[in-house]
Every structure is written in structure tokens, then in C-alpha cells.
């Protein structure tokens, strides 16, 4: 048994529906974008390096796991040095879980947690250093497409054990390089989940999950942006 049964308790998530939250947020953002604002579109690819963070039984350890990131970029100029950036993307998160047998010095990877999301980061991008560098901050709402647990004995479907939606706070820093009429961007982004990913945490049983855990990690992203014109 890899996970210790938690105490019986009702797991609470955000007080409003994530889908309604997303719709309200998109409508609010659409109203905030000035008519005729300069826009840019592009693509982004990168690497997501994250792990689970939170409850963990004795002799187990969460360890970072890498996964791909691929998606698009739509940016709207809100003002001098400030852009609104929407980046719908596919991202693979998860974690490795290490187990340290009694008497052992090091952890051995015993379980691989793979979580596939389609995500929508909504970020404010503020340019500094004459427009060559930028910082980003905002939120990322992600929908769980698939989840699995992989061990030496095989792979187990686990989507129903994790929360359907994940909301993360994003903090990033990067720089941009002009390439003819387009721009290359490179960004290092830190992500912290704000919600409990344990959907059925607290249920007793041999295969019960921990009560509280969330995703924590960094993304290294490269993007290509093409301005479309506007004001």
C-alpha cells in the first residue's frame, strides 16, 4: 500500500463552479480590451517540470517530473508596456513518487503520476528594460483530460481520483528577441496550484489517496509572436 488512508472528511474546492468562473473571467477580459487594440498571435512550446506537494506518507517523497507544453498565444495591448496574454495549451503535469525502504539511503522511484491537462493561462505581461524583458503574472485554469498511475506492475487509470479542474497562480520572467516582423520570447514561469487536487481524499481503503496535495513547478517556454496590427 503506497498511500496511507486519510481521515474521513468532505473535501471542499472552490466555492464557485470552475466553468462559470472561466466564463465570467473571459467576459470580463473581453470587456477590458480596448476596441482596435494591437494584437499578436503565435505559438509556444516548452517543458513543464513539476511535482505534487502536500500530504505524503512516511518514507515516500514527491519528486519532479517533466512533461511537454504546447499551445498558442493571443496577446492584446492594454497600455504602455502592458499586454494581456491568453495562452491556450496542452500541458503534462504530475509527479514521481519515491519510496525509501527501511535501511536504504536513497529514494527509489516507485510510482509515476501522469496528469494531462488542457489549460488556459490568462496573464498580464509587463515589459521592462526598454521592452526587451518582461514579467508575467496571472492565473491558469486547467481541465484534466487524463490521469494515470504507472508502477512496475503496470499502468492504472486514475483520472477519477484527481480534481477535474486545477487553478494555479503564475509568476514569470522572460525576454524577447525581434526576428524580422515577429518576436521570439523565452520565459521561465513558476506555477503554484491554489486548489486541492485530491478528489476523493479521505476515503478509507487500501488504495486511498492523501487528503491534501497540489501541483507545484516551473515551466520553461519558448514562443514565436507575430503582431497583427491595430492601434
Amino acid at each position: 500500500m503506497l498511500f496511507h488512508p486519510g481521515m474521513n472528511r468532505r473535501v471542499r474546492h472552490l466555492p464557485v463552479s470552475p466553468g462559470l468562473s472561466l466564463l465570467l473571467l473571459v467576459l470580463l477580459l473581453a470587456a477590458a480590451v480596448p476596441a482596435g487594440a494591437q494584437t499578436a498571435v503565435g505559438v509556444t512550446v516548452g517543458l513543464n517540470n513539476a511535482k505534487l506537494n502536500g500530504d505524503i506518507p512516511d518514507r515516500l517523497s514527491y519528486r519532479n517530473r517533466s512533461g511537454p507544453v504546447i499551445g498558442g498565444i493571443i496577446e492584446f495591448k492594454l497600455g504602455d508596456d502592458v499586454n494581456l496574454s491568453l495562452q491556450p495549451m496542452y500541458v503534462q503535469k504530475g509527479s514521481d513518487v519515491g519510496f525509501k525502504p527501511r535501511g536504504a539511503e536513497i529514494y527509489q522511484d516507485s510510482l509515476e503520476v501522469k496528469l494531462d491537462y488542457v489549460a488556459l493561462p490568462i496573464l498580464a505581461k509587463v515589459f521592462i528594460g526598454g521592452g526587451r524583458a518582461f514579467v508575467t503574472g496571472g492565473f491558469d485554469l486547467a481541465y484534466l483530460l487524463d490521469g494515470s498511475l504507472k508502477s512496475a506492475s503496470g499502468e492504472l487509470e486514475a483520472k477519477t481520483r484527481f480534481a477535474t479542474f486545477d487553478l494555479t497562480a503564475d509568476f514569470g520572467i522572460g525576454f524577447t528577441l525581434p526576428v524580422k516582423s515577429a518576436h521570439l520570447t523565452f520565459e521561465l514561469r513558476y506555477q503554484q496550484s491554489l486548489v486541492n487536487l485530491a478528489k476523493n481524499g479521505g476515503q478509507e481503503g487500501d488504495d486511498a489517496f492523501p487528503e491534501r496535495f497540489r501541483s507545484l513547478g516551473i515551466q520553461l517556454l519558448a514562443g514565436w509572436l507575430l503582431p497583427l496590427g491595430g492601434d
Binding site: 472528511r9 471542499r12 472552490l14 486541492n196 487528503e211
Partner: peptide
């Protein structure tokens, strides 16, 4: 703000 309680018996 909103978030988890340090008391496991309590809700967020």
C-alpha cells in the same frame, strides 16, 4: 483571501 485551514477537521 480563501484557502485551506490548518485544522484538518475544518473545511477551507
Amino acid at each position: 483571501g480563501y484557502g485551506e485551514s490548518s485544522d484538518r477537521e475544518s473545511d477551507s
